[in-house]
Write a protein that binds this DNA or RNA. Sequence first.
DNA 1: CCCAATTGATCAAACCTTTGATGATTCCGA
DNA 2: TCGGAATCATCAAAGGTTTGATCAATTGGG
Lengths: 179, 179
Amino acid sequence: MTHNTAPPSDLTFWSFVDYAVQKAERELPSVDAEAMRMVLTLNRATSMVIYDLESSVHRPRGLTWPGFRVIFALWLAGPMEAKTTAEISGMSRAALSALLNTLERDGLIVRERSEHDRRALQLSLTEAGYGAILGGFRAHNRRESAWAEALEPDERHELVRLLNKLMAGSTTARAKFRS
Amino acid sequence: MTHNTAPPSDLTFWSFVDYAVQKAERELPSVDAEAMRMVLTLNRATSMVIYDLESSVHRPRGLTWPGFRVIFALWLAGPMEAKTTAEISGMSRAALSALLNTLERDGLIVRERSEHDRRALQLSLTEAGYGAILGGFRAHNRRESAWAEALEPDERHELVRLLNKLMAGSTTARAKFRS
DNA sequence: CCCAATTGATCAAACCTTTGATGATTCCGA
DNA sequence: TCGGAATCATCAAAGGTTTGATCAATTGGG
């Protein structure tokens, strides 16, 4: 990889993946270019979707994306232990702890000590929490629909299948998981 | 959606998407369940991959994931204006500004005023910056390979195609973009 | 029964991100 | 040419994330 290559003048968000993969392939013969392309593309597509959902739906309603995920999980699955909430919403216990401070301060959730294990925390939504999710989720799902329309129904299924297969492979890949 | 449903006792990271989609479909007939499943799955798969890359490759080497992305872009495309760096690495100009403070303090990049436009900032890697990326990228790409092995080659291509089609649809979806 | 190991939660420090405001430069039309 | 508008970067405040440490409650082997 040369040190002082000038960037192509038309380098843009859309062209960067192709540019990066081609250049890496050219200059580093040992690189796994297809894997690189897959991870780059996956990362970009997801951050576009999430940024859109967060900035157009949730922030205007006073929720962050992580905050929404937690309220959403509690809405769907009902009151549960904080440990479970952390696991199913894909965050560490420490991150949830910090996030709960905001949600509790805003009156959306309630923290209670569990009865059978006084170390554990029981989480539940307040009425305000239900209110926050009721309006928010419809708008959220409408935007999900708008995104999904880019694909044909069978393409959506195939995308989900491939993503699930990718995740299932994490065991083989010996991936590191959130603790 | 009932208020006090008890969560199934076996609710886990892996079962949550199915559980959420089925329950939402059952209780909210108007929901677009397939769109919901697609976005949930996309989000999970990506955060697993990124978490693994960041925690197993980059943090042990002293880089965060956003830090890696910026160094990576500068390594591939050479010195460029900060505005371009922000765009191709998918972050806002303000976020890059904050990130550059860390990278500059750690001696990985150099900030210089552009000559033809004294508002603009020219970014380039230091020798330490090159050093950081050289070792890091190989380890990074090896983990990308490990993830990619979960799919057959044609499945990888199909996944990339579908993700690109999804992103291309963002115009139709009138998605909100990072400014 | 008791103490060491484990588990659940929080804290602390460092970092990155968002939105909105502020300053400095440059551009462009009257 | 002059002055308002657009552009580039940074700052400020509020939030969420990470890793590693700390503290309390519970569990289990001797």
